[in-house]
């Protein structure tokens, strides 16, 4: 038992981390050898670097900066590119990763420092498409219409979106030459348009997606649905909203 413990303590995990000091400074990589512990994830490895910021060559460095909150893959804060794929660092278990483990920020978003990115565009997108249910009135509006259970079941899957940004990082059409809003907010339009009260303002959300940088930016690469950590049927949402925006376009033309 004691021998196993020493053997485990000697094992290290190799990390190659892409860092940068400021939003505008050039990125560089640093290597770390981190003592292995059973069941560790990328976050606990980053915590180890925070405790002991020493590189693989033995020289001291600044601790690597990252963001995380829930540590159970529901908040979306710790999204980063791990071994080439965007995903959450908290659910990236070291035992399941090929070494050396390459960690880099999701550069589709502005990088603040090291692995910290600014996902503000995702929250702006939710505001733009009005991803909420308006229930306020000057008097009590009473209870809204009920939602069918069968509909609630698939809508619930869409509500799992944590605005983590992985689908935008995977999408080849989200880049600095395009204003495409990205897959996540399109799926949220489907969610809020499915809601019996939200449906009353369905046209406002559809019209938001029919403006520049809206749903027409989708090129059907379908990387989003393959990358979504919550398994949200993003391409089904996009196609469904394609149908709704197409119908809305004809209705507007015909004045219906």
């Amino acid at each position: 038992m004691a021998e196993t413990a020493t053997a485990t303590a000697k094992r290290t995990v190799k990390f190659i981390i892409t860092r940068r000091e400021t939003p505008d400074s050039a990125p560089y990589t640093e290597e770390f050898d981190i003592p292995y512990r059973p069941n560790m994830n990328v976050i606990s490895a980053l915590m180890e670097i925070q405790r002991n910021p020493v590189k693989a060559d033995g020289t001291k460095t600044t601790p690597v900066v990252w963001e995380s909150n829930c540590l159970e893959e529901v908040c979306g804060a710790c999204s980063m590119v791990i071994n080439g794929k965007p995903r959450q660092a908290c659910s990236a278990l070291i035992d399941n990763l090929e070494q050396p483990i390459r960690v880099a920020p999701m550069t589709t978003f502005p990088v603040v420092r090291d692995l910290v990115i600014n996902r503000e565009r995702m929250f702006n997108a939710l505001k733009r498409v009005k991803a909420w249910i308006p229930i306020d009135g000057t008097y009590d509006l009473g209870p809204g219409p009920r939602m069918a259970e069968s509909k609630r079941q698939w809508a619930y899957e869409l509500s799992k979106c944590m605005t983590c940004g992985v689908c935008l990082e995977a999408c080849p059409n989200v880049n600095d030459r395009s204003s495409f809003i990205g897959p996540a907010p399109i799926s949220q339009v489907r969610l809020f348009n499915a809601h019996p009260t939200g449906e009353m303002n369905a046209h406002e959300r559809l019209e938001a997606l029919m403006t520049d940088g809206g749903i027409e930016g989708c090129g059907n690469s379908q990387n989003c649905v393959r990358s979504c950590p919550k398994g949200i049927p993003l391409t089904t949402s996009i196609a469904a909203i394609n149908k709704d925006t197409t119908k809305h376009m004809f209705k507007r033309w015909l004045g219906m």
Binding site: I238, N242, D244
Partner: peptide, 9 residues
Amino acid sequence: VSWGITIGP
């Protein structure tokens, strides 16, 4: 897909 004819996987 873009005209919303084929929706599901």
